[in-house]
Nucleic acid binder design. Structure first.
Length: 479
RNA sequence: UCCUCAGUAGCUCAGUUGGUUAGAGCGGCGGACUGUUAAUCCGUAGGUCGUAGGUUCAAGUCCUACCUGAGGAGCCA
């Protein structure tokens, strides 16, 4: 008999029919006469209740069905006599595929802390929370490709190893095959990278944007979706050293087109989750309520599904940096000196507390901030007429802050070169990037979406290390 | 990297102003129980109190350093 997934049994299984299921034991309980085994196979958040007659299988066999053990069971589907589930399986045949020593197995049929499970990341796929997150994550990956495919975008694999250290997006991980104990030296004492694998110093990418721009200058609409590496010593709930980023880049888009796409994209993804991940989101919502039940009412977040619907149904607020500064300057917390960093006026970089005030207190919805002072933004952003601001946009979400950062790009060769010189970006090394501004340059725009930050929002989880299977953070690269 | 907090049984935590043999719940194991739902009831085993120093007659408790984890800040996605 072929194995049937529990998700299919719960969806289309027929009472009275016989099925073969395989999975892992979550709990076993029962009396001398009958045992109840909650079996989960990862296909869905729900368990299938297996009813096993003790006399039929013998205590010795059933005793092996401990939490974590894997089983194959053949049996008839039957309406459940108990109240926790509609159907259950009356076991006819029961085979233990893999035993699981209860004294050694770390997962117990009880609540574990997320910190504990993070240390058991090799086993946490077997928990309800992490299997739900993994399924939602997959749905979001699929939805990303779906969205862009439907719009005629072409997915581009940009390089993971890069020789460019001019992207300016943060500290980089070095890539080398040289023996670190015996580094080849140049005459001046510096390291001779010409002896290295690529004949020059190389790093892991911090962004696929620059290569993405090259592709957009021929294919018009492209996107990347790949791993991204930042060697920053960041220890927060929203930073990873290795994360996944989606970077669309569009020819002929100005900043407004860019914002429209970003908003449509985020809403599409969240609606996709609502439409396709109902069971998992229901579970994650309950998990969040449970976690926050000891918090004060004003510190609790909005119920998960309500929050997701709210974002889908409301327009994002769009305003310029200058307008935001004015709002912050006149705000109560600023006047009452409640900000740790008071807003004096134009030019200040916005701190987390300011972004949170705008999003969570003032507008109470996602905010898109545009036209930042050029001094606090990257070299490639298009300079405005005022020569003070650039056509940048940051999409700010409640709780997680910046979920998207993007801009219209500077397509004017002379202006771009001038900005690079001002910001000490080595233009010679970037000849290929500058070439796009020499040959048929067009206005274009793009943005980067941190995939795990999206996952934080959609799942309601509080720590980015819990929405990626194997998080890499400073001092932590286990598994 | 900076600031704050934490590290006691497999897990979650309690441990009073430093004072005798370190506790609970859950989990494990053994038993009871005619269908359970994180089952229930009875019993039982299990701890170099993060590591290394120091103060003291006496340290889980005080001090110092380090390690690990968490939260916040910065960097950003």
């Amino acid at each position: 008999m072929r194995r049937t997934k529990i998700s299919d049994i719960l969806k289309t299984g027929e009472v009275g029919e016989e099925y073969l299921v395989k999975g892992w034991v979550r709990t076993r309980r029962g009396s001398r006469q009958v045992n109840f085994i909650a079996l989960n196979d990862g296909s869905v958040i729900h368990n299938l209740q297996i009813v096993a007659d003790v006399e039929k299988f013998g205590e010795d066999l059933l005793r092996r069905a401990t939490t974590g053990a894997s089983l194959a069971i053949t049996g008839k589907l039957s309406p459940s006599q108990g109240s926790g589930q509609k159907v259950e399986m009356l076991a006819e045949k029961l085979e233990v595929l893999g035993d699981c020593d209860p004294n050694a197995y770390p997962l117990q049929p009880k609540k574990h802390s997320l910190e504990f499970l993070r240390e058991k990341a090799h086993l946490r796929f077997r928990t309800s929370t992490f299997s739900a997150i993994a399924r939602v994550r997959h749905a979001m990956i699929f939805a990303v490709h779906n969205f862009f495919t439907s719009k005629g975008f072409v997915n581009i694999h940009t390089p993971i190893i890069t020789a460019s250290d001019a992207e300016g997006a943060g500290e980089m991980f070095q890539v080398t095959t040289m023996d670190l104990n015996q580094l080849p030296k140049k005459e001046d004492g510096g390291i001779d990278f010409s002896k290295d694998f690529f004949g020059k110093a190389t790093n892991l990418t911090v962004s696929g944007q620059l290569e993405g721009e090259l592709a957009a200058m021929g294919l018009a609409d492209i996107y990347t979706f790949g791993p991204t590496f930042r060697a920053e010593n960041s220890n927060t709930t929203r930073h990873l050293a290795e994360f996944w980023m989606i970077e669309p880049e569009m020819a002929f888009y100005d900043l407004n087109d860019n914002m429209d796409l970003a908003e449509e994209f985020l809403k599409y993804l969240i609606r996709y989750a609502l439409d396709h991940c109902q069971d998992d989101l229901d579970f994650l919502s309950k998990r969040l309520l449970e976690e926050e039940k000891n918090k004060k009412a004003e510190e609790r977040s909005m119920e998960l599904l309500e929050k997701l619907r709210f974002v889908v149904e409301n327009e994002f607020v769009r305003l310029t940096y200058t307008e935001a500064i004015q709002i912050l300057k006149d705000s109560k917390p600023n006047k009452k000196k409640q900000f740790k960093y008071p807003i004096e006026g134009y030019g200040a970089d916005l701190q987390s507390e300011h972004e949170r005030f705008l999003v969570e207190k003032h507008f109470k919805k996602p905010v898109v901030l545009t036209d930042y002072p050029k001094e606090i933004k990257a070299f490639y952003m298009k300079l405005n007429e005022d020569h003070k601001t650039v056509r940048a946009m940051d999409v700010l979400f409640p709780q997680i802050g910046e979920i998207i950062g993007g801009s219209q790009r500077e397509e004017n060769y002379d202006k771009l070169l001038a900005r690079m010189e001002e910001m000490d970006i080595p233009a010679e090394e970037m000849w290929w990037y500058l070439d796009t501004r020499r040959f048929g340059a067009v206005p274009h725009s793009g943005f980067g979406l941190g995939f795990e930050r999206l996952m934080l929002f959609v799942t309601g989880m509080g720590n980015i290390r819990d929405v990626i299977p194997f998080p890499r953070t400073p001092k932590s690269a286990e598994f």
